[in-house]
């Protein structure tokens, strides 16, 4: 059992700083070897987790949910009211989505998601978070200068559009429902899903279907 001793952990981090190999690959190998030696993990199970988050679980899941919400008003209402149940209609409920909330973009509202304190992300619906989402530049600035951050991603926001930034400080996780592209009336759900970018579901992309 842990002792929940923060002072001890600070000491441990100093020791790790001095004794762990510098290369990340070697550090992770050292951790895996020790845990396998002790029977705490199984190497093949790690392979399967990598496979799951490379081939099965990723932003295509979120894109399918968004496209369905665009095509099916009743589904969209269920998604906005109870996102965990609505994504589980696809079987997409999972890691970090037990308290998922969906926030909707409109002509006058743009939503942007960040985790300033760590790197909270709705894994089972968007997969592995991009490195920039977890890096200091985005975490520090998205909350204070969202329009500047959006400009960096090539997204210009009108002065009269309200920007709402959601800081994931609790176990709730946020998924942005982007706007359906104009001129997409003749597209079916699969074709629409192909237009949904990962960044649009985080909020760092807005005008889908436009070539930039």
């Amino acid at each position: 059992m842990p002792e929940f001793d923060a002072k001890k952990v600070t000491e441990i981090h100093h020791q790790l700083h001095n004794h762990l190999p510098s290369e990340s690959a070697l550090r992770i190998k050292a951790l895996e070897s020790l845990l396998i030696d002790k029977g705490l993990v199984n190497s093949q199970t790690i392979d399967r987790w990598v496979e799951a988050y490379t081939d099965v679980i990723g932003p295509k899941r979120g894109a399918s949910v968004v496209a369905r919400a665009w095509c099916d008003q009743e589904y969209k209402q269920r998604l906005l009211q109870n996102a965990p149940a609505a994504i589980d209609e696809f079987g997409y409920l999972g890691k970090a989505t037990g308290h998922l909330k969906v926030v909707e973009n409109t002509d006058r509202i743009h939503n942007l998601v960040v985790c300033t304190l760590c790197s909270c992300y709705p894994f089972s619906i968007l997969g592995i978070a991009p490195a920039w989402y977890k890096a200091a530049a985005y975490r520090s600035r998205a909350i204070r200068d969202p329009r500047g951050v959006l400009a960096e991603f090539g997204v210009d926001i009108d002065d009269d559009t309200e920007v709402r930034v959601w800081d994931s400080t609790a176990e709730l996780r946020y998924l942005v429902l982007p706007q359906r592209p104009t001129g997409s009336d003749n597209l079916d759900q699969n074709a629409l899903a192909a237009l949904v970018t990962r960044n649009s579901m985080i909020g760092t992309d807005r005008n889908l279907g436009e070539t930039s």
């Binding site: 990340s24 690959a25 992770i28 190998k29 951790l31 895996e32 845990l35 993990v41 199970t45 790690i46 392979d47 399967r48 987790w49 990598v50 988050y53 490379t54 990723g58 932003p59 997969g127 592995i128 991009p130 490195a131 920039w132 890096a135 530049a137 985005y138 600035r141 951050v149 960096e152 991603f153 090539g154 990962r198 760092t204």
Partner: peptide, 21 residues
């Protein structure tokens, strides 16, 4: 911000190993 990052889940093998671990 590194806005040009490619969208692969893991950029190196060790990132995937740590995720799995």
């Amino acid at each position: 911000i590194d806005t040009d990052e490619d969208e692969t889940a893991f950029h190196t093998e060790w990132e995937g190993r740590e995720w799995g671990l």
